[in-house]
Write a protein that binds this DNA or RNA. Structure first.
Lengths: 151, 151
DNA sequence: GTTTTTGCAAAGAATTTGCAGCTTT
DNA sequence: AAAGCTGCAAATTCTTTGCAAAAAC
């Protein structure tokens, strides 16, 4: 697993400091360490993993602070969450190849089919990739219903 | 929202019956109704939504049966779950355009970058799609680490 | 100094499990 | 009749919230 350059992490931290200042968010020790931790990882950690990584450095940091910080960072556009789920698990009986359109406003996921997108040329030189089983395109945007309303 | 043809739903139900028989899974009233419900929907329902839809027809059906049935259906390959996995929320500090490789065995998600995939031509005639903000490719497969082990 | 943030503990939401009785085969 | 399911209720797991003490600006 290739790791991030220190300079990339420093860049991200700098961005955070600027964003925090301009949005009036206070730069606490906890927030800096939490962000440093997630900014240095390629592993898409969950809150529990971050807690374990931070505990040695910050004995009293707590899970609730981690969650609050992550949502705050997401609000600033500095982190994203994986998958369309901040809510419950969702199931799909369409097992044919298809793609998703996720509305960022209402969270609705709609399917669409498109032959051209079903078998994209995936570069083989991705680190760690063995066998490719399927490719799916996830399109993010604003759906027609939400586009009509004001933000 | 365009709805599914009755014949599609019937096809799916037939598939389920065959799969159930050949895998020794019993065809109960609950399972048939739960599958019929999800097979008739394009909305990627969650368990709670299915419960609400089923209650009028089956007063005593319960959420735990719905969950058990959905995982069983997933085991048979008849439904899929949205999002990377069924574990906790995961966060990512990489907010530049990038794509994901998800290992179906270990669940690990790795990022990769590929300029060609960043701006795919998305057909405009998808129903309900307004503005497209971003596209991301999610590649599913078996990672090198897992490929070395036996299933 | 004021306002925000933290940590704790406790609440909430989503999902899973043990078990006795009921259904399918 | 045997094996596998279901529903209930209780347990888990993950995430959020109220509040007093503490830290940032």
């Amino acid at each position: 697993m290739d790791s991030l350059e220190d300079s990339d992490v420093a860049d991200r931290l700098e961005k955070f400091k600027v964003a925090a200042k301009s949005s009036g968010v206070k730069l606490t020790h906890q927030r800096l360490e939490i962000f440093r931790e997630i900014a240095s990882s390629r592993e898409h950690p969950d809150a529990e993993t971050l807690l374990r990584a931070l505990k040695p450095r910050m004995a009293t940091v707590s899970l609730d602070t981690i969650y609050r910080t992550l949502w705050m960072l997401k609000g600033l556009g500095l982190v994203s969450t994986l998958g369309p789920r901040r809510d419950s698990l969702r199931f799909d009986a369409n097992v044919d190849p298809h793609h998703h359109f996720v509305c960022v406003r209402c969270g609705r996921v709609s399917d669409f089919e498109n032959r051209d997108l079903d078998s994209l040329p995936i570069p083989a030189q991705m680190p760690g990739v063995g066998t490719v089983l399927a490719t799916r395109v996830e399109v993010t945007g604003v759906c027609e219903g939400c586009a009509g309303e004001q933000a």
